[in-house]
Every structure is written in C-alpha cells, then in structure tokens.
Simulated scan of single mutants.
Amino acid sequence: MSSPDRAVLSLLTDIFLSFDGAILGVTLAFGAVRAASKYASTSAALNKIRDSPEVSVSDLRSLIPPSDDESSHGSIVVVRGTVEPKVTGDGNHKNNVLTSQETGEKALIIHRTQTYMYSGWKTLFQLSNGHRFLLERSMPKQGADFMRMVPFVIVDKNQRSLRSSFLVVNMDGARQPLPLTTVYNRLQPINSSPYAFLQALFFPEYPVGMLDVEKILPPGRDLTAVGICSFNNGVPEIKSCQDLPYFLSDMTKDKMILELMDNTRVIFWGGVIMGCLSVGILGFAAVRAWNRWKLRNHQREPRQRPDQSMVDDEIEDADEIPDGELCVICVTRRRIPAFIPCGHVVCCRLCALTVERRSNPKCPVCLQSIRGSMRIYYS
C-alpha cells in the first residue's frame, strides 16, 4: 500500500472512530436501512419473476388475448426465443440490420464507448516527510458514449420465418443492462505535444490514451425477455418493467430465480449484520457519553458541597471561637484542616481549599509545598 493510500485510510479510520465510533454506527445504520430497502425490492422482483408464466412466442395469444382497450397494461411474462430484425413494409429485413464499422459484423444494437485514460503528477504535502511528488494512478474518465439500435423481434428458436408468430421488443425506457457481446476493444495512445513536460508538471492530470470498446447484439442470438406483454394493434409487444432487474438476458427463468435468491440471501444477512453492529456501536457510544457526563458531574460536586458544609459548620460556633483558633488568613472562622505533609493547622476549611486550588500550593506558615489537607477532630 502506497503512502497516499495509507494516509487516506488513516484519515477515514479516525473519522469513523470519532465520538466513540458514533459516526461508524450511524454509517452502518444507514447501510442497514439501504439493505432493507434493497431486500424488499429484490424480493418483490423475485416473486414477480417466479409467478410470471414462461411461454413461447406462439403461445402468447392464447395466454394474453388481444384487447381493444389500448390503456390495458398487460401482464408480466417470460419469453425465450431468438432475436431477429423486424420485417419492413416491403417484406425485407436486410435494411433493418446495422453493420459494425470496425469488424463488419451484423448487429441489431451497437454500443460504442470511448474512454479517456488520464494520468498526471500531483503534490502531496506531508509535514513529517516534506513535499513528495507522486505519480497518480491512471483514472478512466468517460469521453463519449454512442448507442444505435434498429427495431427487432423475438421468434421461436426453431422458427426463422417472420411471417408467423413473433414478439416485438419495445426498448423505450429500458434501463436494465443488455447482454451485448464485445467485438472491438482497443487502447489507442495519445500522441504527446511538444509541451508534454510542462503539461505533466503544471496540470494535475492529462490524457495519455483512449480505450475504444464496441459491443453488439447480433441477430440469431437466443435470449430471454422478461417484461410487460400487451397487444398493440393486434401485434404482441413486450417492454421492460422498471421493478425488474432483467429485460433481455442470456439466462433462463430458473437461472434468474437462483441468482435473485442468492442476492436476497446476501442482502438480508448483510443488512442483519450491519444492523446488529450499528446497534452495538451506538449503544457503546451512548454508554460512554453517559459515563462521561456522570463523571463530569461527580467532579463538580466536591467543589460545591464542601463550601456549603464549611459555612454550616463554622457558623454554628463562630461566636465562641477563641482568638488562638481563628484562621490566619480570614480571621473569622475556626482552624479545622491540617496541611499535608507539614501538618500545620492554621486555616479554616474555606481558606485551605483556596490555598489548595493554587497552581503551586504552599503552607502559609512554613511555605512548604502541600499535597492536600485533612480535617482534624478534637475530642
């Protein structure tokens, strides 16, 4: 681990453990709440997928009869089939296929990302070791993101003709990850300018390369569509359900259920562990704060109680005090405590307490340093 990583880790540890770990407890409590919310949503998605029927494209009409009501929302179904381009008006689907510019492969969806790789010199000020110039690790930053797609449908695996049953895929509003295949991946270095040295010296970061990645969805691929199926002008259509984590996937329904069950199990126990830890840490911090508050009040009580008891004890016999037993400082109250270690009894309790509270307490008679006082009882 490098020096900056250790410094950041030490700083985060000090922050989380401050206030007796209260910040760490609050963070774990927030994580537990987020885990509970995620567990609820994942469990709901699991139940929806488990209860949804798994049908073929040809059985959709018997399962979901066409309705003239355009406002009907349809029902969630799981359809396994092969993706094919949608047929155009002239019966030809060749024009509805995209071609990759890099590989020349046919595709229904093309997703291309260009990510710039940054690097640079940064100054890390450390009081113990002075100035250090450390090379920053390469940081990927998004440069451009291009997405192209054409209308496509899902047909049965053994069916290649689009004149029979097919299911139109509506990609509007779909946010689930798509099962795309990477066909082009290249890291292109960026040529440095004549001022590269000055750029590296004065700028905290500068681009050193560009990662160009292209992913496609080829026709003829077997996929599973999970979404809301309805009829649009008599044609079956499926669109994504925002409550589900899948829309188009390579997994079958059984694999989706198994994956969601594992996710719910991990999220549940993770939330339970974080909740128990947060309760324990927050309880420990509350007990420590309560003990400190009681200790602070206990330390204040000896300063207040003796003063009151002094006045009560000394007012009772103030009129009958002989001259030889009067305090040498105030000359109004009786001499009661003896200084330690000299043993002189020359002050009343109030004046003795005042002497003890000085930065360098000394006996008023012998000027010897004292460590405290002790009350003397005469029998």
Rank of each mutant, 00 (worst) to 15 (best):
V208W: 01
D212G: 04
D212Q: 00
D212S: 11
I216L: 07
P218K: 12
P218C: 02
P218V: 00
P219C: 08
P219A: 09
G220M: 09
L223K: 02
L223G: 02
L223Y: 05
A225E: 07
V226P: 02
G227R: 06
I228G: 03
S230Y: 12
S230C: 10
F231Y: 15
F231K: 01
N232W: 08
N233T: 01
G234Q: 02
P236K: 02
P236R: 02
E237G: 05
I238R: 07
I238D: 07
K239A: 14
K239Q: 15
K239C: 09
S240I: 03
Q242N: 11
D243C: 02
D243P: 02
L244N: 03
P245Q: 03
P245I: 01
Y246N: 09
D250K: 06
T252P: 00
T252S: 13
K253G: 05
D254M: 08
M256I: 15
L258K: 07
E259A: 12
N263D: 13
N263K: 14
T264P: 00
V266E: 10
I267N: 00
F268V: 00
W269E: 01
G271Y: 03
I273V: 15
I273F: 09
I273W: 10
I281V: 14
L282E: 12
G283T: 09
F284S: 10
A285S: 15
A286P: 02
A286E: 07
A286W: 11
R292T: 13
R292H: 14
W293A: 13
K294S: 15
K294F: 08
L295V: 00
R300H: 13
R300W: 14
R300K: 14
R305S: 11
R305G: 01
P306E: 12
M310V: 05
V311D: 03
D312P: 00
D313I: 10
E314V: 06
D319R: 09
I321H: 08
D323V: 04
G324F: 05
E325H: 08
E325D: 13
L326H: 01
C327W: 02
V328M: 12
V328H: 05
V328K: 12
I329H: 01
V331H: 14
R333F: 11
R334W: 05
I336C: 08
P337K: 03
P341I: 03
C342R: 05
G343W: 05
G343Q: 11
V345H: 00
L350P: 00
C351H: 08
A352Y: 03
V355N: 07
